[in-house]
């Protein structure tokens, strides 16, 4: 199992995502200017400020050569995880519904938040409930200025109906004002997933929590299962 972690100019959490992915599998950085995904079984679009977040967060990165390949990869059913800025890129690329707006407090905010796993049987969450009670609550840090998830009411209703909301902020933890307390959503097919909090920063007790590791482990399980 090999993760490909994209690296744009301005990516900041790329190495963190690489290190997190390597706790469960193999992983390699993929340069934004190249189209070759180097045989990756799953793609991580990491956090940071790709292209300085100029124009609008994620709006330039979505046109990079590597994203052409990622869009095709997702079209073939490949697993794509977008974290923070990566989530914004995936929304800009229309791989995920909705958009990320400025936090309702209008400030960059860093906070450890609790997330409820809403769907436990997906390619991105199937490992999260394996060794604990249900519903699963994950403690994961979030840090962003533009993290208020927004979609129109019809889209939200459709997403909720189809089980595309995988993670929700626990009561009291939705500091950015996201619609329906949404922290992470997948596409209809279930192979593309984006979330604002940073699971790659919650992979070791020493830095506060290892609750985020299950997201990467889930992707491993899903890829291995698809191979059998």
């Amino acid at each position: 199992m090999k993760f490909g972690v994209l690296r744009f100019p301005g990516s900041c959490d790329d190495v963190d995502a690489l290190l997190a992915a390597r706790r469960v599998g193999d992983a390699e950085l993929l340069w934004h200017g190249e189209r070759d995904l180097k045989g990756a079984d799953a793609i991580v679009v990491p956090g940071g400020f790709s292209y300085g977040d100029y124009l609008r967060a994620g709006s330039i990165a979505r046109f990079s050569p590597v994203m052409e390949s990622v869009i095709a990869f997702a079209g073939d059913g490949g697993l794509v995880l977008g974290i923070c800025n990566g989530f914004q890129v995936l929304c800009e690329a229309k791989l995920l519904p909705g958009a990320l707006l400025p936090n309702s407090n209008l400030r960059f905010t860093f906070r450890q938040v609790e997330l409820e796993v809403v769907q436990e049987q997906t390619a991105f969450t199937c490992a999260c409930g394996l060794d604990g009670p249900s519903p699963v609550v994950l403690s994961i840090p979030a840090k962003h200025s533009w993290g208020r998830y927004y979609a129109d009411e019809q889209t939200l209703a459709d997403m909720e109906g189809r089980g595309q909301v995988l993670l929700r902020y626990a009561p009291g933890h939705n500091f950015n004002g996201s619609s329906n307390d949404i922290a992470g959503v997948s596409n209809e097919r279930g192979n593309v997933f984006g979330l604002m909090p940073h699971p790659e920063h919650a992979v070791d007790e020493l830095t506060g929590s290892k609750d985020g590791l299950c997201i990467f482990a889930s992707m491993c399980l899903a890829v291995e299962a698809a191979r059998v």
């Binding site: 997190a20 400030r107 860093f110 840090k143 790659e200």
Partner: peptide, 8 residues
């Protein structure tokens, strides 16, 4: 208002 954790 500061990211205190990037770089793991």
């Amino acid at each position: 208002r500061y990211d205190a954790i990037v770089q793991s």
